[in-house]
Write a protein that binds this DNA or RNA. Sequence first.
DNA 1: CGTATGACGTGCA
DNA 2: GTGCACGCCATAC
Length: 83
Amino acid sequence: MPDFSKKVLDVVSQIPKGFVLTYAEVARRAGHARAARAVGNILNKNHDPRIPCHRVIRSDGNAGGYNRGAALKVKKLKQEGAL
DNA sequence: CGTATGACGTGCA
DNA sequence: GTGCACGCCATAC
């Protein structure tokens, strides 16, 4: 697994409850400030439940997508108080 | 190795 | 506020 993907998954897995990061932020932490698209791709392929990918949202406020349904993603964020 | 794809971001009409 | 076009990057084929 490339370092970038590993870093992205690592950053996302470190997101505390009730807190959300944008794809751009995650990409920046991973070392590629303009790789927001790649971040989404990695999370999309990633199927590890240990990765709270539902805490990663778009910069424009939209929750974005989710491998288990965007609606579920929003629901989880509301539950955690991040929304 | 080159093309196509996608959970993105910004700018402009 | 909404919709479209372009640019960006890693992964899949």
